[in-house]
Nucleic acid binder design. Structure first.
Lengths: 118, 118
DNA sequence: ACTCTCTTGACAATGGTATTGATAAGGTTG
DNA sequence: CAACCTTATCAATACCATTGTCAAGAGAGT
């Protein structure tokens, strides 16, 4: 039984291994590992140390991509933005979100089977 | 008569040519021109098209340097931060300012003669 | 057992960025 | 006149982001 992405899934639940996550968000797995090293994302780990990404993780990654690809912001800049966002409480991303929405509407996310390890 | 920097000068008044400004903030003139091209700063111009920097301009440049050198943020990131700051109304820079103060206190600004064209 | 995929660590190629420096030609200032 | 301003162009250098590869070990599924 294929588990379609997002259908009734708890967005905070870590369900995707790195290859699946990378495929969903169209980012190289190596890049995801670097994002983690740089402290931009923090996926969960299984007992055997395998990364599991949640929907929230993927959303965050798409944000990072949006900032890097569309705005040209580097990773240090994104990190600072995220830190400021936490301090200011969601205000920053709300503002960018309104702009990002218009652009995200153009490219709908693709459905992909999740390799769940629930 | 030497005009000491900042002593009773209107911080919005454009008084420094680019070589002087570059010297005060310890930034290469070429770099200042690029900052302007990238839309990060907007120094005034004389009728003969010469750039004149104000104290506010210099302050802003020091902010840019702080973000690039200490945080590693690139210019696109800084531009985005400035834009967000305008939208959110000074909240962002206030937060960074508190941190930046601690670091700025270490390196006191140097006195330099202003090449005024008042 | 076998195969595939995960992990970390390391290295590398490629294209882009930021800074500095230089040159040329023309204009401005004192 | 000399110095400095302008724009435009080119280049060197170091760094960054992404992708790709390899090695060795571990985990997961058949």
């Amino acid at each position: 039984m294929l588990k379609s992405r997002g259908a009734g899934v708890d967005p905070a639940r870590p369900v995707y291994v790195i290859s699946v996550a990378a495929n969903i968000v169209s980012v190289h797995p190596r890049t995801l590992r670097i994002y983690e090293e740089e402290g931009l994302i923090c996926p969960s780990r299984t007992e055997s140390n395998i990364r599991l990404f949640s929907e929230n993780d993927l959303r965050r990654i798409l944000w990072i991509r949006h900032l890097t690809q569309d705005f040209g912001v580097n990773l240090a800049g994104i990190k600072l933005l995220f830190e400021l966002e936490e301090r200011l409480g969601e205000r920053i991303l709300e503002r960018l979100y309104e702009e990002g929405q218009a652009k995200e509407a153009k490219r709908a996310p693709q459905e992909a089977a999740g390799r769940g390890r629930a």
